[in-house]
Amino acid sequence: MSDKKKSLTVFRSDRHEDVAAIIASALIVVVVLTYMAFIVPSVGIKAPQDGKLVEIFVAEGAEVKKGDPLYSLEVVKKKWVNNVMEEKVAVESFTAKANGKVLKVSGKPGDAVKKGKQAIVVMEHEKGTLP
């Protein structure tokens, strides 16, 4: 198609657009990883789904290692089993994804938490690690 007005891309060809998309996604990955590993001073760890706080395993000021449990949550787990949706209440523990120090703990056992809303634990992580 010689008519440039009809072209669906700002690039010289689809190939150029494909390469640009690969470069753009690589740049996004580099920026996100650099930001999280070296720039962000602390991260608020939020509940990954709605539930009720059962236990908080860490206190403010505590040093934690990657894999240490931070808190546990009572959640409703939904799973398809033999083509039937099975729902059961389960207690799940959530762990630290990087070494670091607990700066703040919000909430107490029994509190209802909403997915992605408030931070349950605020952590300062070791520089160069991905929280």
Partner: peptide
């Protein structure tokens, strides 16, 4: 696992 652990804030 270069992009961070599943469930991580990253």
């Amino acid at each position: 696992h270069i992009l961070g652990a599943e469930g991580s804030e990253t």
